[in-house]
Design a protein around this nucleic acid. Structure first.
Lengths: 253, 253
DNA sequence: GAGTGGTCTAGACCACCAC
DNA sequence: TGGTGGTCTAGACCACTCG
C-alpha cells in the first residue's frame, strides 16, 4: 500500500479504500493471515477520517475477507474447510458398522466431541408437517453441538415421534454403536432413504456465538428427513459453519 | 417501539438497539416488508447519536433481516425461495425429454431467461484437475446468467474439454433440445452420474451486482462434475442466490 | 419541500494486546 | 506504555422518494 493515495470523486471514499484492499488480497499481495494496514496508516495514506477507513474495513469483514482482532489489527482471513460430508456417510455400511455416523468423514487423528441434550417436546408445526403427524404431537428431540479439535462445527436437532423413540436408546444421550439410525432399524423401522434440503443464510447472534463464527461467515442449513418405506421417522435440522464444510452429493441419472 | 427506552450499561448501545429491533421482527410485531422506525425516531427513542442507530440498523442488514431503501426507509426483508432444485432435474427423463434441464423445477407461468457466452480457454488448474486433463488444456466454457421473471438467480460456468465439445452444438450458444447432457450422450459419452460439492460464502461485489443481492445474503456455490463410466466430461461451477433457492438432494442408504 | 437514508468529519474515551 | 481496534458524539452535506 503506497503512501498518500488519491481518491476519485463519484465513488464513496470508503468503497474505494475497500476496493484497493480487496485487490491486494485477491492478487496475493496480502496473503492468508497477513495484517492489513492499521486504521492509523489508512487515515494517513488516504487522508480521510477514521470512521471512513473503519467503514472500508467493515466492508471487507462482511465479505468474509478479513477479521478484526481487538488490540492486534485486521487480518486476511484464511478459509480452511477441513471436513467434508459425503453421501457415503449415510450408507448402511457406515452406521451399520457401529461407528457414529457423523464421524464418517473425520480423520482419525482429530478429537471429536459433542454436547447433547435430549428432551421431549410438542412438535412445532413445520416439524410435525415433515413427520406427517398432527401438530403438537409429542416428539423426542436430540440437540447436539459437534466440535472437532475444539472447533464447533455444527448444531443439530433431531426430532423423532415420541411413540417411536421413548423407552429406547434413542431417547438416551448415548444411543450406542451406529447411533439413532442403527437403533431405528433394530426397532423395526428399516430406512429407505433420506431427503436433504439445503439452504444458506447469515447466522443469528446465538448461532454465531455457539459456532464461534467470525463476521461475514454464513451458515448452511440442512433439513434431513429419514424415511422408511411408508413414513418419515426422523427430521434433523442441522446448522453448519459454512467455513469448515464442503457438502458432497452424488447423483445418478 | 415505545417512546424513550433506556439502555443498560455493559452492552454496546447499538447492539441493544439491534436486539430490540430483532426481537420485534422475530416476534412478528414487525412483519415482512414492514418499515422499521426511521433513524430520526430511533435517535429520539433511545437518546443516542445518529451513527449509533445507524450501526444498529447495519447489524440487522448484515444479518439479512432488513434492507435499507434510500429515501424510503429500512424494511423487514422477506425471504421467498420460490424455486427448488431437486435431484430429479438431473434425471435422464428430464434432459432426455428435450426440456432444458435447468427448467426442471420452474413453474409453467414463469418467464425464464438466460444470457450466455461461449468461449474457448485454457483450463485453470482446479478445472483441469477435476476434468483429469493436463493443466492448460483447451476447454470450451459456457457462461450463463439465469433469471426468472427478471430476477437473476444463478451464474454458471460449464467447462468441457475442447476435444469433446468443439465442432458440436455444445460449443454453440444454443445446444438444442435437452441441452449439453443430451448432446453428450449423442456424441458417445453416456453419463453415469454427477457429483456436487456445495459450499456457502458471502458474494464478491461482482456477484452481488450480477445477482442483485441485497446486503446480508450469501451465495451457495456448487461444483458439479458430470462423469461417464471412465472419465469426467464436464465441470460446472455454479453460484446461486441463496435467498431464492432450496437445494434438494435424495440419498439412498 | 419534508422526510428518508448515505457519506464524511474531527474529535473523545475505552478495551485489548504486546513489549 | 504505545499501538491497536471498539464505541460514541454532534454536527455537516448529499441523494433519493414522495406527495
Amino acid at each position: 500500500m503506497a503512501r498518500s493515495r488519491s481518491l476519485k470523486p463519484g465513488r464513496p471514499a470508503y468503497q474505494q479504500i475497500a476496493d484497493e484492499l480487496r485487490a491486494s488480497i485477491r492478487s496475493g499481495e496480502l496473503g492468508d493471515g497477513d495484517r492489513l494496514p492499521s486504521e492509523t496508516e489508512l487515515i494517513e495514506t488516504f487522508g480521510v477520517a477514521r470512521m471512513t477507513v473503519r467503514a472500508a474495513l467493515q466492508v471487507l469483514q462482511h465479505e468474509g475477507l478479513a477479521v478484526a482482532e481487538h488490540g492486534r489489527g485486521v487480518f486476511v482471513r484464511h478459509r480452511r474447510p477441513f471436513r467434508r460430508r459425503s453421501v457415503q456417510r449415510l450408507s448402511r455400511a457406515q452406521w451399520g458398522s457401529g461407528r457414529a455416523m457423523w464421524e464418517a468423514d473425520t480423520a482419525e487423528d482429530r478429537t471429536v466431541s459433542a454436547t447433547i441434550e435430549v428432551t421431549r417436546e410438542r412438535a412445532a408445526d413445520d416439524i410435525a408437517d415433515r413427520l406427517r403427524v398432527p401438530p403438537g404431537t409429542d416428539v423426542v428431540v436430540r440437540r447436539r453441538l459437534h466440535s472437532v479439535d475444539g472447533q464447533p462445527l455444527q448444531l443439530s436437532a433431531a426430532h423423532l415421534p415420541a411413540e417411536i423413540a421413548v423407552g429406547t436408546p434413542i431417547a438416551e444421550p448415548d444411543t450406542g454403536p451406529g447411533g439413532t439410525y442403527a437403533r431405528l432399524e433394530e426397532l423395526g423401522y428399516p430406512l429407505e432413504g433420506f431427503v436433504e434440503e439445503v439452504q444458506a443464510r447469515m447466522p443469528s447472534p446465538d448461532e454465531a456465538r455457539l459456532l464461534a463464527l467470525p463476521t461475514g461467515v454464513p451458515v448452511i442449513t440442512i433439513v434431513r428427513v429419514a424415511h422408511t418405506s411408508d413414513r418419515p421417522v426422523e427430521v434433523n435440522e442441522i446448522v453448519v459453519n459454512s467455513d469448515l464444510y464442503v457438502l458432497e452429493y452424488q447423483i445418478r441419472p
